[in-house]
Simulated assay, not measured.
Amino acid sequence: MKLGAFSISLAVKDIHVSKDFYEKLGFTVFAGEIEKNYLIMKNGEHLVGLFQGMFEGNILTFNPGWDQSANKLDAFEDARDIQKELKSKGIEMSKDIEEGTSGPASFFMTDPDGNAILIDQHV
C-alpha cells in the first residue's frame, strides 16, 4: 500500500514563532499563507505543516497522488482504495470517504495511541 507524500501537521499556538523556529532548523516556506494561519515548511524531502487555530492535536498526513514536492503522480493508489483495504483489515475510520465519488477526498483514522492520521488526496 502506497500512502503518498508524508508530512506532519502541527497545531501551533503562534504561527510566527513556529515559523521562526523551523526556519532555524533549515526549513523554508513551501506553501500556505501566514495571514490565513497556515504554512507548509520544507527541508529537503521533509514537510511540516504549521496550523494555528485550525485543529486541536497534531496529525500525521499522507497525500495519495503527490510526491514530496506536491507534484501530481501519474500513477497512485486512490484514497478510496486505501480506505477499502484498511477497512478490510479491521481499521475503523473516524471520517469516511463517501462511496461512489471520485477526485479529491480524505478520511481520518486514529492509531492505538490516539494519534490522528489523515489520508488527504488532492487530485
Rank of each mutant, 00 (worst) to 15 (best):
M1A: 15
G4A: 15
G4S: 14
G4L: 11
G4F: 09
G4M: 13
A5E: 04
A5C: 00
F6Y: 15
F6A: 03
S7H: 13
L10Q: 12
A11M: 01
A11Q: 06
V12F: 03
V12Q: 10
D14P: 01
I15Q: 04
I15L: 05
H16N: 09
H16S: 05
H16G: 11
S18Y: 10
D20F: 06
E23S: 06
K24G: 09
L25E: 14
G26Q: 14
G26K: 11
F27A: 03
T28Q: 00
T28M: 02
T28W: 07
V29T: 06
V29K: 08
V29H: 07
F30Q: 08
A31Q: 00
G32L: 01
G32K: 07
I34S: 09
E35S: 10
N37E: 10
Y38V: 03
M41E: 06
K42C: 04
K42V: 10
N43K: 15
N43F: 15
N43R: 15
G44H: 07
G44Q: 11
G44K: 12
E45I: 12
E45G: 14
L47D: 07
L47V: 13
V48G: 13
F51M: 02
F51N: 12
Q52V: 09
G53T: 12
M54F: 12
M54I: 02
M54D: 04
E56C: 02
E56F: 06
G57F: 08
L60Y: 06
F62M: 04
G65S: 08
W66E: 09
S69N: 10
A70H: 05
N71D: 00
N71H: 08
K72Q: 12
K72T: 02
L73N: 00
A75T: 13
A75E: 12
E77Y: 11
E77H: 03
D78Y: 12
D78P: 03
R80A: 11
D81P: 00
D81S: 14
Q83N: 05
K84P: 13
K84S: 06
E85W: 08
E85Q: 14
L86D: 10
K87W: 05
K87S: 03
S88M: 01
I91L: 15
I91G: 06
S94W: 00
S94V: 14
D96A: 05
I97Y: 13
I97R: 12
E98I: 07
E98P: 01
G100H: 00
T101G: 07
G103C: 11
S106H: 14
S106F: 15
S106Y: 14
S106R: 09
F107D: 13
F107E: 13
F108D: 15
M109V: 14
T110D: 02
T110F: 03
T110I: 11
T110Y: 06
D111C: 03
D111F: 00
P112G: 02
D113I: 12
G114I: 14
G114L: 04
N115L: 15
A116T: 11
A116N: 13
I117M: 09
L118D: 11
Q121M: 07
Q121I: 00
Q121T: 02
V123T: 09
V123N: 04
